[in-house]
Design a protein around this nucleic acid. Structure first.
Lengths: 225, 225
DNA sequence: ATGATCAGTATTGTATACAGTAAAGTATTC
DNA sequence: GAATACTTTACTGTATACAATACTGATCAT
């Protein structure tokens, strides 16, 4: 499912990925100040490369910096989450329109096949599998739009909302799967308007739950450690 | 026109802005390797804060890094510029739709007024003024969409295409001004579809010229030093 | 008690030194 | 003379030391 191309990644890169993941899963509490010395020691790295990673993450919106105060975990205000979801909707709707125009028959069929063959059985509740499958679906749609910049931006946005995306996934699983299939059908029919409408609804349906999701997530975050 | 709020900016921040501007105006040649030592000395800074700035810029897409080779200026492939313009179109069209919904009467009127009062006289060919005015118009539209994330993303994209945006501006100036006014009219009428169509055409018209613009820009870049 | 002032401490911001790597140059072999 | 192995060089990547700044807590005046 994921590309098997495994580029040998440098020390700095893996450090960046580690800290990024910590930010994604809110291992730092919202608004919390990040102690560079402590974190560097904990990760077995020096402050210099750590700070470079933190700077990158701040540029990507995972962290914020304050002059002479250092790096802080982003807050997770409902308003900001709403804006991220809105941005995501805009970009994915546009992406699916482009995909309608540019994807080859084969690519769409392959996508449909992958989803079919990897759908977990009705009984099993492997949420993690479903998450992966959903992310894969959305990533592929963007890829079919043939716009790397779009992919890059969406990847960033999705990473920043990943933590909330799966709240209450369980009750939505059947609907999600059906939505995906419908979008693929629209793609095959090259019906851009339909695909766009479906995608918009598919994403916005979850947008309605964001505020509740954030509330729920707060308890998760503060329970964790 | 620009907010008069002038936050006292730190040393690191101004270093970042300096290097960012160098990247925007292609003071580094496309594909060129950036010598950290030389650049640090030239800017009167140390390598450490310079590298932090370079890391941020790489995260924002102005530079690329290669393991153990350092930072390089982005290439400017026509394909990439096309994708940036396409992304910009997607986002600004969505923004103007939201603005139709959310902007107050007063805000739209103010925007119209600002444009009217700052339009250079027919005879004078102050390109720089026009550039500023055009950027201001587009920035304001996004602001009226009430989505900071959208603003952030668009600001980044626009910075990355800024260098090309004004090639052959001269011949387009009247059309540009008229386009802006038409979009504002649509905003006042709350006609989202019309505003979206106008915005799309307004931006795409220039997209057609990108390849030519890049060709032209190459000579500018390599002539410069 | 409350608030202000001022040391002491902790932490960030910057400079610099050193280690590791890739490109360039040089010698050596066929 | 071309190809390969070796050396040199230049630069990036990382660690660490130092400087500047913000926080903490105690002392003192009101």
């Amino acid at each position: 499912m994921n590309k098997p191309v495994k580029k040998k990644q440098s020390r700095a890169e893996s450090l960046y990925l580690t800290v990024k993941n910590m930010a994604i899963v809110f291992e730092f509490k919202p608004g919390e100040r990040i102690n560079e010395i402590a974190l560097a020691r904990r990760l077995g790295a020096s402050r210099t490369p750590l700070r470079e990673a933190l700077n990158r993450l701040a540029a990507e919106g995972f962290l914020v910096t304050k002059q002479d105060r250092g790096f802080f975990c982003r807050e997770l205000k409902p308003r900001e989450m709403f804006e991220l979801y809105q941005s995501r909707t805009i970009l994915e709707v546009a992406a699916v329109r482009l995909a309608c125009e540019l994807a080859t028959e084969q690519e769409v069929v392959d996508l449909a096949d992958t989803l079919d063959h990897n759908t977990p059985a009705e009984g099993s509740l492997n949420i993690n599998e479903l998450e992966k499958l959903d992310e894969y679906f959305h990533e592929q749609i963007v890829r079919l739009s043939r716009n790397m910049e779009l992919s890059r931006t969406l990847e960033n946005i999705n990473a920043r909302i990943r933590y909330f995306r799966w709240v209450d996934m369980d009750s939505k699983r059947i609907k999600t799967q059906k939505d995906h299939r419908d979008i693929i059908k629209a793609l095959i029919m090259r019906d851009a308007d339909l695909a766009a409408t479906l995608m918009e609804e598919h994403i916005s349906r979850r947008l309605d739950q964001i505020t509740a999701a954030i509330k729920e997530s707060y308890s998760r975050i503060y329970l964790a450690s």
